[in-house]
Amino acid sequence: MIELLFLLFGIFIMFFGALGLLRFPDVYTRLHATAKCDTGGAISILLALALASDFPITGKLKFLVIAFMIAMINPMVSHAIARAAYKSGIKPKAVVDMYAWDNP
């Protein structure tokens, strides 16, 4: 029962992450949507699969390894893409921009 709840929650969150990717105005806010929602949804779905499967214990550990690697890799790649987007000249639609004050 609890794994079904985790699965439905993960699918719900991933759908809203994709919707945020379509609706937000610029790259940085889109990165907000994808980094958080993909990480949370993928970890939730993988926990559900690890609870529901009847693989041996090493098979269940592999699900947790994938979840841990997603939690490490996804923020790192989003950080790299945000920095590269700023360096390549995409201006953010922002009320305050302290990064431009320090790197003219």
Partner: peptide, 26 residues
């Protein structure tokens, strides 16, 4: 509109593909 948008969207789609493959293994 820009290359950064494409990179972000491609990253998202690949994460979804990872989750789909894990589901298929079950």
């Amino acid at each position: 509109p820009t290359l950064a948008d494409r990179a972000v969207a491609l990253n998202t789609a690949t994460t979804k593909a990872v989750v789909i493959i894990a589901m298929l293994s079950l």
